[in-house]
């Protein structure tokens, strides 16, 4: 197994606050890795720096040996990184299908016209949203917007998929389908780095966990081992999580 993502000494400051403090870890090709930690520990900020939404204050991010830290999000997207956002970001003035076509048309595949439409419907089918393809995106429920966002990310055929609490707010049935969906990505060679609070999902899905607290990495290892690490137990109890 080779590293797809290598992060070293990654740091991000907001004024006086160091939200991410010299964090290093790597993700192997084909792995599903969880990034865990109490609220405010810097998980979203890490994803934001990987996707290029925020430039790092220090440290480096490499995607299969190529430096991507500090590149603009559109360049990073074209190198094979796609993501969903913690607070779902749909494109409300477009239809559901057009939301997906947005990433097909400008991603590395540059699909357009009938080919893009067919592909968009296939991706929507995958997340169970094909029947809403021609509805306005703003009429979707919150959960369906999350599905649409995942379809948009998958349409980019990413090498690395970043999911920021994508399973949050799903009911038990939806959660099961959601977990199966992410599981199926593994078979397609997509590497996943996910931020998640649903521990059952983490246990079911993830090969490995990286745990953060107050901007620092406190544990990194196989899921059960990382979760039972004494610092992790303390951080979670202190952070108000079970």
């Amino acid at each position: 197994m080779t590293d797809l993502l290598t992060i070293s000494g990654l740091t991000r400051r907001f004024g006086g606050l160091t939200a991410v403090d010299a964090v290093s870890f790597s993700v192997n090709r084909g792995e599903v890795v969880a990034l865990l930690g109490p609220n405010g520990s810097g998980k979203t900020t890490v994803l934001n720096m990987i996707s290029g939404h925020l430039p790092p204050s220090g440290g480096t991010i490499a995607l299969s040996d190529e430096m991507i830290s500090g590149l603009s999000p559109n360049r990073i997207a074209l190198k094979g990184v796609a993501r969903t956002f913690q607070l779902v970001r749909g494109l409300p003035s477009l239809t559901v299908a057009e939301n997906v076509i947005a990433s097909l048309a400008f991603g590395h595949r540059k699909l357009w016209g009938a080919a893009a439409r067919t592909e968009a419907l296939a991706r929507l089918e995958e997340v169970g949203l094909a029947h809403r393809a021609d509805q306005s995106a703003q009429d979707l429920t919150y959960i369906d917007q999350k599905r649409m966002e995942l379809a948009r990310a998958l349409a980019a055929e990413p090498e690395l998929l970043l999911l920021d609490e994508w399973l949050a707010g799903l009911n038990p049935t939806e959660l099961r389908t959601g977990i199966e969906l992410i599981q199926s990505l593994k078979g397609r060679g997509i590497t996943v780095l996910l931020v998640e609070h649903v521990m059952d999902a983490v246990r079911a899905l993830c090969d490995r966990c990286v745990v953060m607290n107050a901007g620092r990495k406190i544990a990194d290892g196989p899921t059960e081992k990382a979760l039972s690490h004494p610092d992790v137990v303390t951080a979670y109890l202190g952070g108000g999580h079970a």
Binding site: A77, A82, L91, F106
Partner: peptide
């Protein structure tokens, strides 16, 4: 149109 809706998403779409 994507830019008009959300520039962050636009950039993440490439």
């Amino acid at each position: 149109k994507v830019i008009g809706d959300d520039e962050v998403v636009a950039a993440h779409c490439g």
